[in-house]
Design a protein around this nucleic acid. Structure first.
Lengths: 337, 337
DNA sequence: TTGTACGCGTTATCAT
DNA sequence: ATGATAACGCGTACAA
């Protein structure tokens, strides 16, 4: 592998001058520049990135922490992030935490060991006190996930209001006993949703019992299980708030192969507006997040922090959501689309 | 940021000894080892990865090239790859080519600049002659994509036979005029599928006309367009082979809001066995690929190349597919779930 | 068992 | 305008 030294020799000049050419710096005669460019071509020279990193203390790489890529929400997120980052010349490392505290911390180590310049956390299962120390090694930005006490940039939706609106919608459609089927480990975000949901119930004078709380529903097959659980043990339930479109899809799929009708017997709302929510019959009422905008903003904020350290105060960007009314909750005429 | 030098000073020893402790090398008194470990803790010392890379000429990082993450097939692929790689202590960089030749080459540069030790190509739109030169900078492995002339490891299915079987299935179900709705840029893999498809038609004495060839169908909305095209311009078509479950889903979705019935009026087969193919009504007959096994194998093969350069001859691993018979093609009694 | 000294490939500083 | 030289932080012959 040719080094800068080789190029210098071949061109009959010094490393310094070659370096100047590489980095488009002034003070190089056009003639010598040509000679160097030619030498680089002849040798197939490419600057060694490790050496540059060591010298510049920069990696042009960021880590994106998320639970898993195959969850379509996170898939969309990282797709947009990678695209945006590459526009700025940054590489993206995928870090799947699978909701594990240990893995999350392990990946944060990338910051300490200088393998990445900054970190985006779209996964957050550790307490802030365990994350904060890593801040001194480089900037961290939250996306989707968030918490009150951290003073770093956060890009997210108002999950509490979103859940509140979804619950109100179910109540307005005449649901009397609404189950809450969500899952995964407790995160601040999950707590917010739950809060909004409960507020709506309280406002409408509906009680919420333990039996209506399902906290292990993540994917399609869980959704299927949820349906059977409801049907066999709690048949009086007539509405379900789910934490994802996948759970909603599983529920609706099972219902359609039973004698229950959605939404007449059971109204269902999903979350994320994934493609499947539109393809299901009936189509799924869901909450849309501006994923791409959030992803772009997150990358932009992080890179700005890298380019101008400490220039801007950590801000919070709250993006709007939208409750998309579809057929899975259409018990009264009002429903649109 | 503390360096190895700081640790050495604090412990009253030399850098060398500290280095020995870091890398678990012998010839260090237990007592001094303790002293050093303590010093590292006190200083919060972590080895600088850039320096290590420069010194060792290794990055412990691999690049995965693919069209886009939100295509569920590739989402599954990179999810499994990242997980496997992390078990070996390797980082994964996402490289979305969006079928662009330029982007594909740009990402291959990561190999030349020593930003990664090896590359997995699950995207392949350039000619082999343009890819081959990068081989001298490090190992490259194909996954899913492949071509005859390259002498590097390749992990993939027999797409030709898979397509052949799907087409035969449609013919056996009594389809007389079968459209081929696939898309994206031409790849060797696409050519193989088409070949298998055509062979089946020929075998059954069915002609294939230009009007039956749709080459721009990639996602759900394309599938919807395909349906309307067929319905308005080529209503005699009674079967469609699609390149992905998403296209199939779009087709079926539109058909269900029309007076056409699937499979009676139009039989549809998909590709990849994505979740949506199971959730659609009717469920979609499709071809299943052993994605995770292929992903694991690919990572394993690449890492073996990194650990033992030139030890094993480049081999080809062909994985079995499975045609899953579902309702979207069930025109005769035989079909199974 | 421990330490000295050099080099990995670049870039920044300071002369000239 | 150009070049010599010193870092960046680490690992490893080789010497002791």
């Amino acid at each position: 592998m040719a080094t800068i030294e080789d190029v210098a020799k071949l061109a009959g000049l010094s490393r310094t001058t070659v370096s100047r050419v590489i980095n488009d710096q002034p003070y190089v005669t056009e003639e010598k520049r040509q000679r160097i460019v030619q030498a680089m071509k002849d040798l197939g020279y490419v600057p060694n990135s490790s050496a540059r990193r060591l010298r510049s203390q920069k990696t042009e790489t960021i880590a994106v922490l998320l639970p898993r890529v195959t969850n379509p929400f996170f898939g969309n997120l990282i797709e947009a992030m990678e695209q945006k980052a590459s526009e700025w010349g940054y590489q993206v490392i995928v870090c799947q935490t699978h909701h594990s505290r240990k893995k999350e911390i392990d990946y944060l180590q990338l910051l300490k060991t200088k393998q990445v310049d900054g970190v985006i956390m779209a996964s957050l299962v550790n307490d802030w006190k365990d994350v904060e120390p890593y801040l001194e090694s480089g900037p961290i930005v939250f996306c989707n996930e968030y918490m009150e006490d951290a003073s770093i940039p956060m890009i997210h939706m108002d999950h509490k209001t979103a859940a509140y609106e979804a619950a109100v919608h179910l109540l307005e459609q005449g649901c009397k006993h609404i189950a809450y089927a969500s899952g995964g480990p407790e995160s601040h975000l999950g707590a917010m949703r739950k809060q909004g949901f409960l507020e709506a119930l309280e406002e409408y004078g509906r009680p919420f019992l333990d039996e209506l709380n399902i906290d292990w529903a993540i994917d399609v097959s869980d959704g299927q299980k949820v349906f059977h659980l409801i049907r066999s043990d709690f048949p009086y339930i007539d509405g379900v708030f789910t934490g994802s479109d996948e759970v909603a899809a599983g529920l609706i799929y099972e219902a359609s192969s039973s004698d229950w009708k959605v939404p007449e017997d059971l109204a269902v709302v999903g979350f994320d507006n994934q493609m499947v929510s539109l393809l299901m019959v009936p189509s799924v009422t869901t909450i849309q997040q501006p994923v791409i905008q959030m992803a772009d903003k997150t990358v932009e904020v992080l890179i700005q922090q890298l380019l101008h350290p400490g220039a801007i105060a950590p801000k919070r960007y709250v993006y709007p959501h939208q409750l998309l009314l579809r057929n899975s909750t259409k018990r009264r005429e009002a429903a649109i689309q």
